[in-house]
């Protein structure tokens, strides 16, 4: 993976932690510098993700990333009549719904769906138990599906303030 692709991947991962484009941009910039300090190598995507995550935790949301909600109320989303199935999918709505997720949920979902990490790999990467990771992914999916099926989407208070993370 060349530097450009690596930066793009890092930026997308940063957006899963901090949905504001400016903050994600900042995260990638700082992580890139840290990776190259002292003439270091660019490293792998996983290495870049780790640095981005460390900066994020240091700077903003240690409490949110380590926060854990027990697996409760995980009733399977049996409703197949989602907004997507109804043909009412809207990219903007999806973006706003992603803003309303907790950072940990969004991160787990991103790593699973976009990056193709398994639950165990996400567990290894984030230090969360595998069961917690599964719970986060499940809840994130459920919230998105329910949100897409509902009208209209109300952004979270933090999203309204332009900050991506929510507790």
């Amino acid at each position: 993976m060349n530097n450009k692709d690596l930066l793009q991947a890092g930026y997308r991962y940063a957006l899963s932690l901090r949905t504001g484009a400016d903050d994600a941009d900042d995260l990638v910039q700082e992580a890139w510098y840290r990776l190259h300090r002292h003439g270091g190598r660019a490293g792998s995507k996983a290495h870049l993700f780790t640095v981005i995550r460390n900066i994020y935790v240091d700077r903003w949301r240690r409490d949110q990333l380590v926060a854990f909600e027990p697996l409760d109320n995980v009733d399977e989303v049996a409703d197949s009549r989602t907004a997507i199935d109804d043909g009412r999918y809207d990219a903007l709505r999806l973006a706003r719904l992603l803003d309303s997720l907790r950072a940990a949920e969004r991160e787990a979902l991103f790593l699973n769906v976009v990056e193709g990490y398994t639950a165990q790999e996400i567990s290894n990467f984030t230090g969360r138990p595998r069961g917690t990771v599964l719970s986060l992914i499940h809840r994130a999916r459920r919230k998105l599906r329910q949100g897409l099926a509902a009208d209209p989407v109300e952004p979270s208070p933090e999203a309204r303030k332009g900050k991506g993370s929510s507790s």
Binding site: K4, L7, R12, Y89, A91, F110
Partner: peptide
């Protein structure tokens, strides 16, 4: 749709150039 959402999120070429320029040369 999630993949499409994140695929649309991209740094501009100019921005990538700036980040590369600001990092120590390897």
């Amino acid at each position: 749709h999630l993949r499409e959402h994140y695929a649309r999120a991209r740094l501009s070429d100019a921005r990538i150039g700036q980040i590369l320029a600001a990092a120590p040369a390897r």
